[in-house]
Amino acid sequence: MVELKVNKKTYRLDVDPETPLLWVLREELGLNGTKYSCGIGECGACVVHVDGAATRSCVTAVSEVKGKEITTIEGLAGLIGEALSEAWIDGDVPQCGYCQSGQIMTAAELLASNPRPSDSDIDAAMSGVLCRCGTYNEIRRAVHRAAGRSRP
């Protein structure tokens, strides 16, 4: 049995402790917003927050996150979450949309630690999240817009 805290709910799950968190979220909890794309932590489509830190769930065994606070795109809330969501929608950022949860979760971690990131701060934080559709400029603009809105 593995006890997991996801989006403020606690679950007790009978899963192989080696299973990557990604697949537990998707298949056991039905939280499909977090995506599988590379499986080796190379692309960032699977980023969730573990105790607030952007974490690649495809290479994180579920046993490693026992008792920690996990947040997925479905549970992203608060000022930063709302600001990002609004900025993403206003800017029509997604194209195919597959990587966007990972982009938003990564941006949320950035804004939590750096409420006014510069272009190069954004590039440094976000360049590990791949977007095959090439929405990078729209993402950068949306992060700036969200930064303007997310401060209390």
Partner: peptide, 12 residues
Amino acid sequence: RRLDTELKTQGR
């Protein structure tokens, strides 16, 4: 505005 933006932003 794209009709699928909201769905894709919210992971839905």
